[in-house]
Nucleic acid binder design. Sequence first.
DNA 1: GCTTATAATGGGAGCGTTCCCAATTCTTTC
DNA 2: GAAAGAATTGGGAACGCTCCCATTATAAGC
Lengths: 347, 347
Amino acid sequence: MTSDRLTIIEIAKQAGVSRSTVSRVINDDPNVHAATRQRVRSVMQKLNFQPNAAARGLAAGKTRILGLVIPMGVAALFSDPYFPQLIQGISAACNQHDYSTMLWLAEPEYERRTIQQIVSAGMVDGVIIASALTDDAVIEAVRTHKVPFVLIGRHPVYVDITYVDVDNRVSARDAVLHLIRLGYKRVATISGPLNMIGGLDRLAGYKDALKARGIVADPNLIAEGDFSEASGYSTMQQLLPQEPDAIFVASDTMALGAMRALREAGKRIPDDVAIVGYDDMPFAARSDPPLTTVRQPIHRAGFVGAETLMELISEQDAAPRRVILPTELVIRDSCGARVMREKKMRA
Amino acid sequence: MTSDRLTIIEIAKQAGVSRSTVSRVINDDPNVHAATRQRVRSVMQKLNFQPNAAARGLAAGKTRILGLVIPMGVAALFSDPYFPQLIQGISAACNQHDYSTMLWLAEPEYERRTIQQIVSAGMVDGVIIASALTDDAVIEAVRTHKVPFVLIGRHPVYVDITYVDVDNRVSARDAVLHLIRLGYKRVATISGPLNMIGGLDRLAGYKDALKARGIVADPNLIAEGDFSEASGYSTMQQLLPQEPDAIFVASDTMALGAMRALREAGKRIPDDVAIVGYDDMPFAARSDPPLTTVRQPIHRAGFVGAETLMELISEQDAAPRRVILPTELVIRDSCGARVMREKKMRA
DNA sequence: GCTTATAATGGGAGCGTTCCCAATTCTTTC
DNA sequence: GAAAGAATTGGGAACGCTCCCATTATAAGC
């Protein structure tokens, strides 16, 4: 029974070299003769050898694993395709750079243990924190433990943190300006949760737009949702008595809910109430009517976030980075722009 | 600078015991005096000690990490809430049992490397394979390498494999029988991809139902989709000339597409064409009209799958397990059952 | 051709745990 | 109160790799 685990030593033996040389080949050390490298490689290939991850991690102090932490405070996000897209981006970057992804959904009850594990068990070389609340405990923890990390979404307070984000504020402002330009007079908004930076920034953008046009923001036209369809629905109902003629909704999922409420109230979209969403989720193009929305590159954010984290890991004392990804206002039917243009052309 | 990493030895020193005893406490070995255990525990707590994962993994040969492998052949699944729910279930089980989750989205190009890594780098103690194609290479690999694994969804060929699934066939049959009982004469189906066991089984269930009622299946009323909204849409268009009066769609996401096609064709649901979906995704209850569908417990499947895998890991030579989770036909408006009942009551 | 620099290689010493066996300390029993 | 057994504890030897330094082979320079 020679079914011992395959180790670097066996490879060394078969290739006629030492442990060290095999290790060098594995780690792409340039100080190996080309012929030797080739020989070692082919032995590894032949035996289907894969170096033991735990041993490498222990010896080198690096695991080549990135942690993805998703605080589950806002479970709503998990019921739409936001996270799948983000995860795909991260995973693609990991595959490309020979990293793996560890996933932690931080449910509140387990959070303390989880956090400890993340920061001090040495399981991961760094972590990506997605859509954290503004006062997230995980951020605090990785910060004090000096674990490399990047946020998906900027941080409202700390300025020395690396993050990947879109310009929520400016893109929201532009979306609202689009509505104003189309002639709507009472533009309302359903914001995201205001304990998340994205929610906060998009609301600020909404206000910026009004101010830019000299319009005084009416607090009755502003309501807070939680990114879920249900909240879009109920919040829209609550807003209806204020008779808005247009509404900027901080996520497509909520926009769907809002449209459902409008439909039930007998309002036509965009004729009675125009609507603009945010995200450009796959379903936005297929809703009835198709939703005008702000497209943000979620997959790309995950990809870039992971790559940025890898850079942070390899450079010690790397300076914090801020990556802002571009957005795009996708004009479909729900904002009324098309209808109006057609009318104008007919006239 | 005594900023050396905190190890078991420091804990031992401060608690006045040996390495071994600390290790015993960490691993809940009963052979430790209660008082000693207490003392060690409090020192660990005070210093916020977390044993090094790589070292444990190396020494014990166990990582307490489960791998979740999602072959990305069917990317469609990733754009609806199926995976988020599944992942949440798995993650919840892991949290509860002190495991972590490693995530691999197996993109075809990287698959070989990824597979090797999964099976022979010792990163994980076992793997969960979700929605694999029927001839998946990953399954082959974990099988020959004797890595414990469970499938989400049964395997069409191997019978000695542990899996968690719902009874796709029977539940699909019941859904179709429901339509037949309501009096529909030309019941069509949009199946899932036929290289996935779920797609296969649900189609078989459809045929079972027809046969049970002595109806000869009309191949023109059967069309294959790929679980995506777009495929639901185009497949429905293709089916329309056959003039079905009801349709069983193998996923809610496809059902959404089918409804869009029907709407565009001027068909009323359920009056002109009744429709039944599968999954009971969150959006099914809110579609227009609300979708009658087969509810399957996705979150629970993930949870149970993870727990089952943990059992497999701890018992050597465990016998394969087959877990079948219950489904439920959720009757809403799209199948016409309510409308009919109301009509009947009025009469 | 001999010295010196340089490219390749080898081997010892960890990395932080667990596991096993031996040693010690309590208990129990007669 | 001594012997035997059980409960508790300690320490050496892995686990499979990387890292550093020493050594050997090769190339370059005069």
